[in-house]
Simulated assay, not measured.
Amino acid sequence: MDKKEIISLIDYTLLKPTVSKEEIITFCNEAIEYGFNTVFVNPYYVSLAHSLLSSHNIKVGVPIGFSLGGVTTQTKVEETKESIKNGAEEIDMLINLGALKSKEYDFVRNDISEVVKASEGLMTKVIIETGLLTKEEKITATQLLVEAGADFVKTATGFNGGGATVEDIELLRSLVGKELGVKAAGGIRTYQDVIDMVNAGASRIGTSGALAIIDSIQDQNNFLRW
């Protein structure tokens, strides 16, 4: 994959809790310089990022229920609505992990469905935090988000341990087929990581290390299996 193809797959992220306004401005300028399609910032900075990026046709995405997922459904819904009002164009929501572990599957499905509805047709991805789940829980979580109408399944936040693995991406892709997207996120730091994830079935990559990845790309030829 060449540099342009890699850039088109990446969601460039800056979600650390201590990020300053000045860092967001620098981050947005980097997104413009490198030509990323989408960036992700915390809800507080959506309006600022949108004001800096909208004229460059760069979407601002927002994490909902970040980074633990345990807030109420109504809180997630209101956070989604306010973020959209402020300029967010993609939604990455975190599943309620406690409810999933408690086998409260109707609640989990509804939690996702209500955010999907509040997103009003915008791209909605559901983070299932694969590093904290058994294989059976990964399968169940993916089935629930499909039933709830989400557009993507996403591996991880990168804040709760674990991250994207080739095995998990292969599993998630096998579960959703070609109908839904699979976003690999958490611990993706190198060009080879990106290639491995895409070969395993990822259609989007989330990383805060996007610049280092792009800058490391040489004239390499890599064959994509998927």
Results as ranks from 00 to 15, higher is better:
163 G>A: 09
14 L>I: 12
48 L>K: 09
141 A>L: 00
209 G>D: 10
28 C>G: 03
36 F>P: 00
30 E>Q: 15
165 T>L: 07
167 E>L: 10
135 K>F: 06
120 E>P: 01
64 I>Y: 09
157 T>V: 00
220 Q>S: 14
36 F>Y: 13
52 L>P: 08
210 A>G: 14
146 V>Y: 10
18 T>A: 11
89 E>G: 12
151 D>P: 03
107 F>R: 01
177 G>E: 03
105 Y>K: 11
166 V>E: 12
4 K>V: 12
94 L>K: 02
42 N>M: 11
153 V>Y: 04
8 S>V: 00
2 D>W: 06
193 D>C: 07
7 I>R: 05
149 G>N: 01
58 I>P: 07
205 I>F: 02
98 G>E: 03
190 T>I: 07
25 I>T: 10
132 L>K: 13
99 A>S: 14
15 L>R: 01
64 I>D: 08
200 A>V: 05
223 F>E: 12
32 I>E: 06
185 A>P: 06
82 E>C: 05
62 V>H: 07
209 G>H: 13
151 D>M: 06
216 S>E: 08
37 N>F: 02
11 D>Q: 03
100 L>D: 04
213 I>R: 05
137 E>K: 02
59 K>R: 13
13 T>H: 06
18 T>Y: 12
138 K>Q: 04
169 I>E: 04
204 R>Y: 06
181 G>W: 08
91 I>S: 02
75 T>M: 12
169 I>H: 07
81 K>N: 03
122 L>G: 01
186 G>R: 11
157 T>S: 05
52 L>A: 05
14 L>N: 09
104 E>V: 09
133 L>H: 01
189 R>Y: 13
201 G>W: 02
89 E>N: 11
168 D>I: 00
86 N>F: 10
199 N>I: 00
191 Y>N: 08
130 T>Q: 02
64 I>F: 07
62 V>F: 05
65 G>Y: 07
31 A>E: 02
159 F>M: 13
51 S>T: 10
89 E>D: 10
19 V>S: 09
54 S>F: 13
214 I>T: 05
223 F>L: 13
82 E>S: 13
209 G>Y: 06
18 T>L: 07
49 A>I: 04
171 L>C: 03
218 Q>G: 13
82 E>L: 15
8 S>E: 14
104 E>F: 08
180 L>N: 11
80 T>C: 15
143 Q>T: 07
89 E>Q: 15
225 R>Q: 13
27 F>V: 01
156 A>I: 04
136 E>N: 10
79 E>M: 02
187 G>E: 11
16 K>F: 08
43 P>L: 06
180 L>C: 09
118 A>T: 09
2 D>E: 13
49 A>H: 06
50 H>Q: 12
185 A>Y: 03
74 Q>G: 05
